[in-house]
Amino acid sequence: EKIKAVVIDGYPARSMWVQEFTNFFIPEMDKKLAETGNYEMEWQESYGGSIVKPKGVLEGIKLGLGDIGIVTTIFHSSKLPSQAIAAVTPFVSPDARAVAKAVDEIAREFPTMQNEFAEENQVYLATGVVLDTYQVFSVDPVTSPKDLEGSKVAGAGMNLRYLEGIEGAAGVRGGLTDFYNMLQTGLVEQALLWPEAAATFKISEVAPHMLAADLGAVNSKTVTVNKDYWDSLPDEVKEALQEVAILYRDHVANVAMERASESRDAYVAAGGTITEATAEDRAAWAAAMPNIAREWAEGLDAKGEPGTEMLKAYLGKLEAAGFTGVRDWTAE
């Protein structure tokens, strides 16, 4: 039996997670279903704005314009607040694999994340972590977070709040594509981004100094399925999707880590210098920040969701995987 599936993302087909969906997720699904031969998928992949824009995937899946979608969750702080779990806990784990696994398990063990997607008429499938860790890229030599004092720093979304503890530092909002220009013209002295993005946008040319502050990996993608479509699927296909989703989660995180290490090498080869931030400096930066993790957990608690428990469980999972934060975000 043939089953049609329209896969959507607003990002272009060349984006890493989209590419891996085409080259990994889909072949794995086909392989799995071929084992019994009962069902065969007929894929229609529509990426890069042909049906929705990056911010429109969530609504597109909700409204049935696509069957399976890769939602970029950082655009939806209002509808998907619990997805910010990794973004509000900086300085814990710079390992995409550990963060992907921990967030995914939280999504399965607590009802909150799945409920948020259910509200949007869709079924949670898997978490994608596509960046290893935010770092500080600087025009002038930088050896410690103190060098950020009084300067302008390009950032986006939640990471602008990481700057709140640094004396006189002003966050300047911008899209990834603008960072090169912002650094080059002196509009900002530093930018927060991850090594792979730095390599893609040739940041080494304008900001040859990187402070490895290891702010941490962040989950930003979630694979979801339209609820009505999901209900129409036979159990065999549902199970296959769920199994492949976990493989995809780990695969994407692995690719992210490989890319990250290649990108660091490329940065150095292109003349960039990397300075490791000391443990004290990282601890001092974390301590100076407002506790955005608690803000986040209390926000969820107030809505009757187990925010505080999720936060504890999440950090516990990372600790079990060998990653202990420099600040206890659950304290206070």
């Binding site: 929705v52 824009k53 911010k55 429109g56 609504e59 597109g60 409204l63 049935g64 314009l65």
Partner: peptide, 14 residues
């Protein structure tokens, strides 16, 4: 018909 309406909804808002 609903899908056609949904297309309007998402395109006009977006």
């Amino acid at each position: 018909f609903d899908l056609a309406m949904n297309l309007l909804k998402i395109a006009v808002g977006d």
